[in-house]
Write a protein that binds this DNA or RNA. Sequence first.
DNA 1: GGAATCTTCCCCCAAACGGTTGAGGCGCGA
DNA 2: TCGCGCCTCAACCGTTTGGGGGAAGATTCC
Lengths: 225, 225
Amino acid sequence: MSIRVAIVDDQALVRGGFATMLGLQDDIEVVAEAGDGAAAVEIARAHRPDVILMDIRMPEMDGLAATQAIVEIADWPVKVLILTTFDPDEYVYNALRAGASGFVLKDISPEDLVSAVRTVADGGALLAPSVTRRLIGRFAAPPSLDSLVVSRLDRLTSREREVLVAVAAGSSNNEIAEDLFVGAATVKSHVSSVLTKLGLTNRAQAVAFAYESGLVKPGDSDIGF
Amino acid sequence: MSIRVAIVDDQALVRGGFATMLGLQDDIEVVAEAGDGAAAVEIARAHRPDVILMDIRMPEMDGLAATQAIVEIADWPVKVLILTTFDPDEYVYNALRAGASGFVLKDISPEDLVSAVRTVADGGALLAPSVTRRLIGRFAAPPSLDSLVVSRLDRLTSREREVLVAVAAGSSNNEIAEDLFVGAATVKSHVSSVLTKLGLTNRAQAVAFAYESGLVKPGDSDIGF
DNA sequence: GGAATCTTCCCCCAAACGGTTGAGGCGCGA
DNA sequence: TCGCGCCTCAACCGTTTGGGGGAAGATTCC
């Protein structure tokens, strides 16, 4: 079962080059091509390819919008591999948010491109090294705004940190008391300690501190909202 | 100028395999090996390699701690490439936070490993496809828990959103009143509206909501903490 | 055997918060 | 022109919070 690929790029020459290159592989079959985003959505719907090589800069509808549209309408496991010349941050982040499985630059070697297609078809994701680097940077940065914050978190006892996460979840003192199986007075004294030790004045600041410090992160909230 | 590589793994056989494999490359030179984390820090200091292949599971000091230690003491541009058999989330995230430039699995092909070494030596970063996928997932998720949340934010008037960010910064009603040049009663009524419209019960939840929804993000806090 | 720390709880009290109702002014679209 | 929603306030009231003490039991460390 070969990998069925669609190629989307506004330059016919580029499409042809990729198509030829990929077509030489035994396990890859180029089933469709499109020259703009709107056409991309059409051929995606019509041919249901496994992988779509998508340029970003295109007339009509750009690659990001097309990616989002395709991912939304897709009722089959399609993977979009963004293939572009530039890699500014906005492109990358928007592409990943739109649902792309990969982001590689056009200066990639033919072998690597083929391997990238196989990787995303296989359910993996793949980014250009420079992109990966920045993504890691963004990911690794938040959790600690440099020991300035973390050192203050360290001053808290484990119980106090526990209370702080509960506070950060928006619980009242009474709710926290029930959750932790202690009296309300206990929670009050813990909260007081937390505020004092962290140099804060109210629990709203405590919530903000919990997020800013990385003690709790957006997404791992217990509250559903 | 060849790439100077150090290999850290507690199994001598594995070290030998990698060393031989990498040594065959014209542009790669294996300059040191270590069998545990503590030794890794030593050889890093002594040999100042460009790239360190680092296993995670090791006696004495694990690869994550060693990575962190090396990155901290390093006064030369060293890149740590984590090379492990497993890829649970904790490993990955801790590794990236510790300062690793890459995270690949031991089932990687020899050619890909060599290419990975070259990539990180060149300043890029590289992750195993499965790892990249999860990282993208975590990255793409936060910005908006998809319309469920954003739609509720839309219900707020612009003034109410303005008040909400102030609340999220930990300001009291009086402080917000001063900042926005309105009366305290006005702020109260705005806060009330916000809580009602968002279905929240107290301002701590409002702060959490602001972060969870992406209205405010860790880092763009006005408060220095 | 202390000393220190953490956890658990109590009291009191002033301040802040959250909810409600109501009201005046303003702009915008029907 | 007449609503309608938004922003602006006000007063009232009950609840929650935050800060000030203090104290008992458990643990760890010296």
